[in-house]
Nucleic acid binder design. Sequence first.
RNA 1: GCCGCGUUGGUCAAGGGGUUAAGACGCCUCCCUUUCACGGAGGAAUCACGGGUUCGAAUCCCGUACGUGGUACCA
Length: 509
Amino acid sequence: MSKVRVRFAPSPTGGLHLGGVRTVLYNYLFAKQNGGDFIVRIEDTDQTRFVDGAEQYIFNCLKWCGLEPHESPFHKGPFGPYRQSERKEKGIYSQYAEQLVKNGHAYYAFDSKEDLEKMREDLKTAENPSPQYDHISRKKMKNSLTLTEGEVKDLLDKNTPYVIRIKMPENEVISFTDMIRGEISFETGLVDDKVLLKADGMPTYHLAVVVDDYLMKITHAFRGEEWLPSAPVHLLLWKYLGWQSDMPQWAHLPLILGPNGKLSKRDGAKYGFPVFAMNWTDPKTNELTEGFKEKGFLPEAFINLLAVLGWNDGTEQELYSMSELIEKFSMDRVHVAGAKFDFEKAKWFNHEWIKRFEVSGLRFDVKNQLAQNNIIVSDDSLLDKVIELVKDRCTLLPDFVQQSSFFFKAPEQLDVDAVKPKWNEEKKAFFIAYAEKLAAIGNWELLSLETAFKDLATEKNIKPGELQLPFRIMLVGGKFGPPVFGIAEILGKEETLERIEKALVIFGS
RNA sequence: GCCGCGUUGGUCAAGGGGUUAAGACGCCUCCCUUUCACGGAGGAAUCACGGGUUCGAAUCCCGUACGUGGUACCA
């Protein structure tokens, strides 16, 4: 048994979306479990769609997710190149395409764009809105099956542009076993003669995957379900090229769906959630699509939620670390049906991960969030106390800003409206007295602050509850944040007194 | 249209002939807390439909409906 080699083959045409990351993840997990290699190869077959910077972007995303490949354009292994465009330069694809023509499994097609359009137009009926170039229609087209040898040679000599198409058998049933779905079969007569080699000499995906997988000794190929319909073409190619015994095992992963159908970039904009791992700016349109990272997700949570979108281990467990996933993931428990992405649940995962993280693991991110809001934290031990106090109520990383900025910077505005209606002289007197009491207090800690507060309230015959909200507004500025005495404790005597004093002026009488 | 794949609460899902049909998210009620959360206790809500097979079907078979993907010199 040869060593397991799994590959992810993105085309660098845009952002890396949820489905892509999940495919990578399953690749990675499977490779890890089997002590094999995880390979990333770039499918840049179509130069018109190649987007600047997209390749680097993909690797940045993988790095953030903790899914770094063993082999890639940046860490080359023995079976390169890792970009299809580089392999094309050596003429490898056309060589195999020619071989197929020679063996009678493919043919030259000289049809122009207009010829194809005409054929589609002519054959179009109400029942068949999209006619194919298949074993029936090819008989009427300009190709090496209909033309004489002399005519073909003549066209070739005159440098007539041509493509090479696979010659699908008229009447065969071809089947294979998918790792997730089991046995799947197709009738070849219903599949069209796909283009293998384009007029510009570039291979299409169909030829390229097969050749690349073979040359790179891939043993397992995972890809999205949208590829299932073209599987028969690939199967046949493996056979016609004489590599059948080396064919990888296939797994077609279920689709991740948006609110309506396959998840698209548009859905993200429309429903307000990210669809890409990280921010993606389209260099052509300059349009920015927000990523999960920038939205405030922890990579651990992102990986976790993707892992269980379409897979579970049969227990009630939902929270998995990467190492638990490596231990427990199994391909045969991956679902067959597509799953709708639920952003609410995604947020829940993040929340859970923030709660389960150690303070030290959050320090960097929180500092960063605060810095983005012009709050520079220099005291790490203070920051740690704050994070500990606050993290249970943060779902996304930016929530830390609202929940903790007032520890580092006095609130600029107080929510006076929340206090004013019930504010009176008695309450004002209470806080003046409380401030005096605090000024004299010896041990500045939560319990003594609270006891002093409640004792004084009882003494003044006011319900402590009615006083807590004003106190909170004084310290944090609004109706949020952790328990108020905990805040005062961390703020310290001087700062607390200062905020009370200032607020009393603002509240007036 | 044709082909492929699918269908358990609103969403993710367990269960694969006999179950009170797990659990999670979200929603609702209550407790805790007179901020907001966390936490705790409850609640509403599901086997797409129609036929078989069977003593018995969410589970097996066949149809239908619906969803989704493909049907490009895109991947």
